[in-house]
Simulated assay, not measured.
Amino acid sequence: MSYLHVLNGDAVLTAFNQSSLPGDIVVCREVLCEGKVKNTKDPDVFFESRAKHLEFHYGIDKQSYYTQVVQELEKIKPSGSLQEIILWFDNDLFCQFNLLFMIHLIRQRFKALPLITLVDLPRHPTPENYATLFETRTTLTETDLEIADDIWDALCLDTPQALELFSHMNNGHFKHMATAITAHLSRFPNTENGLSSIQEFFLQRLQMGDYRWYDLYKLFWDSLPVYGFGDFQLDVMTNRMIKAGVLEQDDQMLRITSLGSEILANEENYMDYAPMEHRWLGGVRLKTSRWRWNKKLQRLVSM
């Protein structure tokens, strides 16, 4: 039987190769929970939009994006011998949104779908784990695939209302999706001081004392594993907070500023100091969005 294994990121590639499971491998190197995602059914149009956005706002070279990301994903294509695609994805936001796109891409490229299965990947799997996980993989039904495509479409819309509905629904075999969506929605500016959930976490910890950046990152990973963010995403957020004047960095040390303390006390609003012109969450442009995260209600409200 011919298998195609889709892995989320290079971090699991070494251990997977040591597992000696048969089949070809594709590595998804996207970060689709970060930045703009264009609402289109054409993969070429999507990748072109994504490449421009990541180069302009994140400093990711367009050619490198096509070489490292797009060319790798071009391996996902019909083949006469291919009988099953196995999706290996963790339960955090980072992985779950990449999973949605992989299913969307597969459905765009295959007229007749092969068997598609899903592995609920634990954190930091060892080579020995993969054989057992492979044997316990879940077969995704047509209904599952339609659900995933519907959630992906909702993520790409310019309003988060449809996406929020899925955080309260039974999403078939995607048992972690509702939690991941809620984590994503909590990244919208909140109603009290305009901070996202992660920004507020950083300021609350720094209010208690200065941290080396890597110690603060580790605390975040240990406390809020639901996000699954890496150094790159946290560096982007930290630099934005420094430019907004709520954090200061001295060599490796991070500290909260007086403005940061005022925002944390709800005396100022972060959105008054942080440029939102090119900030996106999925298809939602934050500068023009009226949606805010209500911490007490744990849902979005229109302001």
Rank of each mutant, 00 (worst) to 15 (best):
A265H: 08
Q249T: 07
M271E: 14
L281A: 11
Q71G: 00
Y3T: 08
T139H: 08
G283R: 03
I60T: 10
N98C: 04
T126H: 07
L203E: 10
M271R: 15
A265K: 10
Q63F: 04
Y211G: 01
S197I: 13
A11V: 15
S81H: 09
T179C: 12
I85L: 01
L4K: 11
E128G: 07
E30L: 00
Q233W: 06
N190I: 06
E135V: 02
M241A: 08
Y227N: 01
Y227P: 02
G283A: 03
F166Q: 12
W213C: 03
L157M: 12
R299K: 15
L133W: 00
L32V: 00
V27M: 02
N170Y: 14
E30I: 00
E277V: 11
S289R: 09
W291R: 05
V69I: 15
F134V: 05
M237E: 13
A265N: 11
W280L: 04
Q204R: 10
E34D: 13
A51L: 05
E55D: 14
K52H: 12
Y217N: 13
D24K: 11
D215F: 11
A148S: 15
L216K: 11
V31F: 02
I242M: 14
V284P: 02
D235T: 06
T143M: 11
T182H: 04
M241G: 00
L157D: 12
L13G: 04
I85E: 02
D235F: 00
H168W: 05
A178Y: 08
H173A: 13
K175G: 02
R240Y: 07
T40W: 04
K62A: 14
D153K: 09
K41F: 03
I116Y: 05
R299N: 09
M241C: 10
T139I: 15
V119D: 04
M241Y: 01
L259W: 01
E34G: 00
A112V: 14
G172P: 04
N294E: 08
N91Y: 15
N39Y: 09
K295V: 10
E48N: 12
N98P: 03
L13V: 07
A162G: 00
I106A: 02
K218T: 11
L195I: 01
I60A: 10
E84P: 05
L93W: 03
Y3C: 03
H173F: 01
